[in-house]
């Protein structure tokens, strides 16, 4: 009996400790210094396309935000699956493979995340590792911003309506970092931290465009938070504008 107890207890403790593993940065100390890459814009091409959706989009219950008087009083639609005229918004499209080895310098211009109407705008964010993320509170409600990062240092900070913007930098590439507000459980946004600048988020009409892509063969991927990831191979010639459409469907 003692043996069973001990084994079960060790299993549970082991599992829990495993779940609590600290974030591990992807940069390897002692690795050779990466080569900076510069792209010749005169020969660069681009890829653009439309993300479409087939079938009936899943329905989510309206959000009840009345727990906070600083949030909208009426029930609000969820922003998880945004389909309009068969086009899917909030799909993160990025170059997954094929870029030349080396590093791309991150932009110093911050990506802005706004809390307005007790929602995050934008809902899906693409940002480069090292690029600042500026978080604003334009609500009359208090918020907390909790990043559930595993590859970067996670954070959790309060932001009152009168507070200054919060600026955060994700040092390492990491996909689908959840940002959530624990004061308003429906507030969720995803940050995709990339090692390069070749990404886009599909707009309300499903369109996306990735400019200034060096000529080459790539794997282009499209990720939706509910429908998963799709990939395709593309070949971009000098000054060529490649068309690449994705199609998601209900039940994916």
């Amino acid at each position: 009996m003692k043996f069973i107890y001990l084994s079960f207890a060790s299993l549970v403790v082991g599992l829990l400790l495993g779940c609590s593993k600290a974030p591990t940065p992807s940069a390897q100390p002692g690795a050779p210094a990466p080569v900076p890459i510069s792209v010749d814009k005169a020969t660069a091409g681009s890829v653009a396309g439309i993300v479409s959706f087939k079938g009936t989009a899943p329905k989510f219950p309206l959000l009840d935000m009345t727990s906070d008087p600083g949030c909208p009083k009426k029930p609000e639609p969820a922003d998880v699956v945004m389909v309009k005229d068969g086009k899917l918004a909030n799909v993160f499209v990025y170059i997954k493979e094929g870029l030349p080895r080396g590093t791309f310098a991150p932009s110093n211009a911050p990506v802005v995340l706004t809390q307005k109407g007790c929602r995050y705008s934008p809902h899906i964010i693409g940002i480069m590792a090292g690029q600042p993320l500026t978080i604003l509170n334009q609500d009359t409600a208090d918020h907390n911003i909790h990043s559930m990062s595993s590859g970067n240092v996670p954070f959790n900070e309060s932001q009152m309506p009168t507070d200054k913007p919060i600026t955060k930098i994700f040092k390492y590439p990491e996909m689908k970092v959840l940002l959530e507000c624990n004061q308003h459980q429906w507030m969720r946004a995803y940050v995709n931290v990339m090692s390069h600048p070749y990404f886009a988020v599909s707009a309300a009409d499903g369109s996306f465009s990735i400019p200034d892509l060096p000529p080459g063969e790539y794997t282009l991927a499209a990720v939706h938070e509910k429908f998963g990831e799709q990939m395709m191979r593309i070949k971009v010639g000098a000054r060529e504008n490649v068309k690449a459409d994705f199609g998601f469907a209900a039940g994916n």
């Binding site: 907390n144 959790n156 459980q185």
Partner: peptide, 9 residues
């Protein structure tokens, strides 16, 4: 209610 981190400090 997933409110454990609504007060960060």
């Amino acid at each position: 209610n997933n409110a454990g981190l609504s007060v960060p400090d």
